[in-house]
Amino acid sequence: MNAAHKPRPKYYEFNLAHHWPPAVVSIFHRISGALLFLLLPVLLWVLQRSLASEAEFGRVHAWIGHPLVKLAAIAVAWACAHHFVAGVRYLILDTHIGMGRESARRSAIAVFVIEAILVLAFAAWIW
């Protein structure tokens, strides 16, 4: 059996607390990206309705005032914030800045801190 046919090692650990922070940033980057892809038609539809007419704008305005819609909006804001902040971190890593083990760990924690501030600010603004 040559190296190409060796079965890939599999390691499943679903408890995110057991991973080091950059791995958690990574999987959330993927989850938030997939979520935003799936939500794209909803966001486009809301933009379309809000621009359609005065009455439609009012309907969207009333609709986004509903508490459940606000909660959903906060979830979307989290996906946007995480994808944005983690994405900027990856762009910086691409320039070979912060590649060390300790600095990578610290920047991953910084991603979570910044996104938490952004999401809390958004929640405070809409509520």
Partner: peptide
């Protein structure tokens, strides 16, 4: 389809 949809929304072809 989303790109075409976005263009339609932006240029008011709805």
């Amino acid at each position: 389809g989303y790109v075409v949809w976005a263009a339609a929304v932006l240029w008011g072809l709805q």
